[in-house]
Simulated scan of single mutants.
Amino acid sequence: MVKGISQQEYDLYLKDDNKPFISRYAVGYAPGSTFKTITASIGLDAKVTYPDKLRNIRGFSWQKDGTWGGYSVTRVSDVQNVDMSKALIYSDNIYFAQEAIEMGEKTFRNGLNQFIFGEELDLPIVMNPAQISKQNTFQSEILLADTAYGQGELMITPIQQASMYSVFQNEGKIVYPKLLNDKSERKTKSAITSLTASEMMKNLTAVVSDPNGTAHLLFNPAHQLAAKTGTAELKKKQDEKGDENSFLLAFDAEQDSFLLLSLVEHYTPGSSATQLNQAFIEELFSYFK
Rank of each mutant, 00 (worst) to 15 (best):
V2C: 10
E9H: 08
Y10S: 10
D11Q: 15
L12I: 15
Y13Q: 13
Y13M: 15
Y13V: 07
F21H: 15
F21S: 13
I22M: 12
A26C: 11
G28H: 10
G28W: 03
Y29L: 08
A30K: 07
T34D: 04
T34N: 07
T39E: 09
T39N: 08
A40V: 09
S41M: 10
S41A: 15
S41I: 00
I42R: 02
D45R: 04
A46W: 00
A46P: 06
Y50H: 14
R55E: 14
I57Y: 06
I57W: 01
G59F: 10
K64D: 13
K64F: 00
W68Y: 12
G70Y: 04
Y71P: 00
T74G: 09
R75Q: 13
V79E: 11
M84Y: 02
S85M: 13
A87S: 12
A87Q: 05
L88F: 08
S91E: 11
N93G: 01
T107C: 00
F108G: 04
L112N: 02
I116E: 01
F117L: 00
G118W: 03
E120N: 15
E120T: 15
L121D: 09
L123F: 09
P124W: 04
P129E: 08
I132M: 00
K134F: 09
N136E: 11
T137V: 12
Q139Y: 09
E141H: 05
M155N: 13
Q161N: 06
M164P: 00
Y165E: 07
S166R: 02
F168P: 04
N170I: 10
E171T: 11
V175T: 14
Y176C: 05
K178Q: 15
N181A: 11
K183Q: 14
K183V: 03
S184W: 11
T193H: 04
S194F: 07
A197P: 04
S198G: 05
E199L: 15
M200V: 12
M200Q: 07
M201C: 07
K202R: 12
N203R: 14
T205F: 11
A206L: 15
A206R: 10
A206D: 12
V208Y: 04
P211T: 08
T214Y: 01
L217P: 01
N220I: 00
P221L: 08
A222H: 12
L225Y: 03
T229K: 02
T231A: 13
L234D: 07
K235V: 07
D239G: 13
E240P: 05
D243W: 10
N245T: 08
L249C: 06
A253M: 03
Q255P: 01
D256Q: 11
S257N: 14
F258I: 07
F258Q: 07
L260W: 03
S262K: 10
L263S: 06
Y267E: 07
T268E: 12
P269K: 11
A273R: 02
Q275P: 05
Q278M: 13
A279R: 10
F288S: 00
